[in-house]
Design a protein around this nucleic acid. Structure first.
Lengths: 236, 236
DNA sequence: ATAATAGTGTCTCTTAGACAATATTTC
DNA sequence: GAAATATTGTCTAAGAGACACTATTAT
């Protein structure tokens, strides 16, 4: 690798921010206020600052766009997209981060005047998004769905303390299937390191027996993994 | 995302190229001919050309460095590294690709005068590599080891037609463990879509009964996955 | 014959998945 | 009581892992 004068690139970060609200998996979108793609939905993002690490830039953009408490957020690098022409203005390489946030932080727009909104991913099945963001969203959804299988990532959608039923609803909504509550309960409580009982604490939902509260355990990988191979497919 | 004049970035691709030769998992390295890190080992890579897609740049660098037939190579994006200061000369964002190649293409250096070499990864356990390439290599190895579990990626280390025993040796060398040949054989031949028998063809090794030849099947995910959870650990 | 690899069969134990039954709450 | 959710237990089938045994080659 020799030092030569090649055309400079613009470096940006974009975000696939997912949450669950009103029984739907939703992605954070902004409405573009400028050309190109003015008025169209897009994923939030922005330029990387000169002395800023990539992950820091992603965290900054996320905070700017949502005001979310970053301590509660799962943030991981998804992939990088740099096809020539993906942005008609210049050559842009964008590093995309996937963020999972627990609660429905009100869709408050940040410093930008662009309106941020949580859109159900089922309403974005196609080409509504600007740039190559449809492909990026699809990649992010696939990553999230796959990682629920072999990591405790589903807990990133939950508050710090949660019931088994709430965790199950995360799996059902992200995977779009229904899971047997009894087998699910046995599975997650017996997978070592997945869940830690908070103690004698219980809570309530609306009706039904109160549930034990758990927090996320220390495991980073699930052995054995959760399986979505054969599901009831009694999904909504 | 507004168009502003930020400091331009240099965009490069680096490669973690893995192969198996003489019972060792090896990574392609070059010896740096210039400062910084002159004389030190590093991963191959180079600048992205102005009108070149990222994956194309990775493929080009791989071909330049090794002369490998790209049709036989598995190439996937690994991750992107852009911490300020990772290259002392300028702000560089490097998109790293992971490549798995089947055979020991002679360590021929390409157009560069830097000598390319296949180094066993066990000899690089630490800080020998330049830049942040030690971390990149570690990430690439982890990716490869993980993907052997739930994808047919191991076949990327094999020639187009291979025996079950050769495939097992790939798993054993990449995972650093020993696997029961009988259970392995039953597992891979019964996992749908993993292997396709080439037909009545057989081959030979040195001694022992000739083996059936297989080629990679159509599956992109393995159900059920190969497990390295509990291994004999009778590894070499 | 001996050594080495390929491949089949068998056994046990664990787990996934189906589902009955009980526990605890609200209405 | 009815309805809804939580939790435990039971059964069956499938798969993992251990390992005996047979098959086929080279020396």
């Amino acid at each position: 690798m020799t030092t030569q004068q090649y055309e400079p690139f613009a470096a940006t970060v974009d975000l696939v921010v997912l949450t669950i609200r009103t029984n739907a998996l939703r992605v954070l979108t902004i409405c573009r206020g400028e050309e190109p793609y003015k008025g169209q939905l897009a994923l939030p993002g922005g330029f990387v600052h000169p002395d800023e690490d990539l992950a820091d830039a992603a965290a900054r953009e996320l905070a700017e766009e949502t005001g979310i408490d970053l301590a509660a957020v799962h943030l991981e690098q998804l992939a990088t997209y740099g096809t020539p022409g993906r942005d008609p203005r210049m050559r842009v390489v964008t590093v995309v981060y996937l963020a999972l946030v627990p609660e429905p932080p009100r869709p408050s727009a940040g410093t930008d005047t662009e309106a941020a909104d949580w859109v159900p991913v089922t309403e974005l099945s196609g080409d509504q998004l600007a740039f190559d963001h449809n492909q990026i969203l699809a990649d992010g959804l696939e990553r999230a769905r796959a990682k629920l299988e072999y990591s405790p990532l589903a807990t990133a959608f939950c508050p710090p303390e949660f019931a088994v039923g709430e965790l199950r609803r995360v799996y059902e909504i992200v995977w779009g299937c229904s899971l047997d509550p009894r087998n699910f309960h046995r599975k997650v409580t017996s997978t070592p390191g997945f869940l830690e009982p908070v103690g004698k604490t219980v809570s309530r939902y609306e009706r039904g027996r109160p549930a034990q509260l758990y927090r996320c355990g220390t495991a980073t990988q699930l052995h054995p993994p959760m399986l979505r191979g054969s599901v009831n497919s009694t999904a909504q």
